[in-house]
Design a protein around this nucleic acid. Structure first.
Lengths: 245, 245
DNA sequence: TGAGCAGAATGGTCTAACCATTATAAGATA
DNA sequence: TATCTTATAATGGTTAGACCATTCTGCTCA
């Protein structure tokens, strides 16, 4: 029924003031706040208190503090990085597993594919095909190209979500992807056959999207993520066993 | 190819040390860190620097700082709040439209319903029905119960996502809902007919979920969100016109 | 013309003090 | 004895002023 009557902590008040100024657009990305010595006069607080507030704002990703002359607190553009970071923290806390990530990813990936199937245009279709070719080009004998392949794979998924033109969808995808990638950073190697199966999966999805088959696109995307996840978990547990022995 | 060679900022080093201690379990939730005056001796830093570090850790949700004697930095259990908060900040910062929010919500709401249809048990079905009854009970002549109804409506959606038992799904839902609510906080009133249509929608979704019809559940959930959004936009623009005149 | 140096502005850190909040223990009172 | 009040001390919150470290700018000099 009631809310906290007042803000006792001064630094919190400073955080709120500056945050509001940024969110309301009175401060725009690239703007530089006055120097700490000026700000503390304007806000009538000590420099220590002001700096605590700036640290919080920095942690929130709203500002970036530059050193040296001409430096200062630079207002940042909105970024999904804080989301990714706090998500990563949860994962390290073991509150979120790879399975959770993959399951959720399958859902939004399917939805993105379904959405894309409804509104894709020819230029976007063209781009998807060229990305697919890049992915296919990574496959072959010779040095390991797992990283390059995964990059290309990721680019295709990101472009599918980009087609929806929905910023929320795009940065949620990014956060989830980045955190999944963290699991794979451990010298993961895919064999040629798996890559080929993946490319075939992607081709099927893209075909369904381009042909406008909403349900098929969704289903294929979901299945693809599931298959990919099961494969990766297999490789990871195998690596685990090897390093145990 | 290379990464930053070293950590120049002392406070960052302090953050890293304490964060690692928490993530590795050397510090457990509920533990209280030494007082600032002790910590600054242990870490060989000034109190100001230490406090900047503590503020960052607090912002990350890793500690909570209590005042007074016996107070200090209490280690927190992992929480979804920082993710939700940064997500909300991103949404506000990008000035994401209600349409974007609703569109994305329709997708994950549909996916949650589909997922729930696959694995719902009788106790959960029971709970859903009781929530549905609560929502229905809000409808009737007399004082406006829009808020109560929306609460009940929200509870049903949240429970559907809770059935998936996927923490990511749960807090993404929560963030999206919270941010959508921000648009409705302006003395919104629903008429009786709309509420009844909504309850019917929810009943259909729940029936589909309980009967395990995955595709139907997904489709109904998506349609429901779309209808609800269109209705709300209509009411909002009408309010807008009224306040203009 | 270019390299190098000096100065100034700015964030980073330190010290030392005092204020505000709160749990606990001592004391006063019924 | 039991309960309320009060004093005390420990802890975070805030302030002030100083100095160090980094970096841009422009000047000097070869």
């Amino acid at each position: 029924m009631f809310r906290a009557a007042k803000q006792n902590k001064i630094f919190q008040d400073v955080v709120d003031q500056i945050q509001e100024a940024i969110l309301e657009g009175r401060l725009k990305p690239g703007d530089i706040l006055p120097s700490e010595r000026e700000l503390k006069e304007m806000l009538q607080v000590s420099r220590g208190t002001l700096r605590e507030a700036l640290r919080v704002l920095e942690q929130k990703g709203l500002i970036h503090i530059k050193l040296g002359v001409g430096g200062g607190a630079v207002v940042q553009d909105a970024s999904y990085e804080p989301v990714t970071e706090s998500l990563a923290l949860l994962i390290r806390h073991q509150k979120v597993s790879l399975t959770h990530l993959a399951e959720f990813r399958a859902g939004i990936e399917g939805e993105a594919a379904a959405h894309a199937a409804r509104q894709i245009n020819s230029a976007q279709a063209e781009h998807l095909h060229s990305l697919l070719n890049q992915a296919a080009a990574c496959i072959g004998p010779g040095e390991d190209q797992t990283q390059t392949f995964l990059e290309a794979d990721k680019a295709i998924h990101m472009h599918l979500s980009a087609i929806t033109r929905n910023p929320i969808s795009i940065f949620v995808h990014k956060s989830i992807h980045e955190n999944i990638d963290r699991y794979y950073e451990q010298f993961l190697v895919m064999d040629v056959q798996s890559m080929q199966e993946n490319v075939q999966d992607l081709k099927n999805i893209i075909d369904a999207v381009v042909s406008g088959d909403v349900h098929k696109a969704r289903g294929l995307a979901i299945d693809h993520v599931h298959r990919f996840t099961i494969y990766m978990q297999g490789v990871l547990s195998q690596n685990q066993n090897n390093s145990d022995s």
